[in-house]
Amino acid sequence: MRHIIAVLLENEAGALSRVAGLFSARGYNIESLTVAPTGDPTLSRITIVTSGTERVVEQIIKQLNKLVEVVRLTDLSEISYIEREIMLVKVRAVDSGREEVKRLTDIFRGRILDVTESTYIIELTGDDQKITAFLDALGPDNLVEVVRSGATGIARGEKALKI
């Protein structure tokens, strides 16, 4: 099953490589991994999308917690949460295709950021499902370049991952 894990990490040199190294050394899946500073400059936040059996995901969480620089983490998929990813996609858009791409972008509430005679660059924000659906709708033949940020997520309601 797909899991999205948010991790607060000491903002120290080398901390990220411990997390990445853990996944490769133990053969865990990484679908995406994003990292950025938080409001507290001493902490970074990592969001990892991974998948595995319940046993494997339980180990992933325990092994992450065991890293000395991990301050706190939460498996967002266990609770109610919001997931967002940003995608920039360059698509071929010529002739009648131009109108069709624009229409799809509107339906998915994307934005066209750049236009040339033969291409559009579109920005789309959403969860994994929405982004995948949009890419499917555009069709593989029209995609010139796909840039995805990887997922980030936050718990709904009062729950918060902070110290």
């Binding site: 046993r55 339980e58 180990q59 325990k62 065991k66």
Partner: peptide, 11 residues
């Protein structure tokens, strides 16, 4: 003492 040792190989 290490939670990661528990249910790692055997539930």
């Amino acid at each position: 003492i290490d939670p990661a040792s528990i249910s790692k190989n055997v539930k």
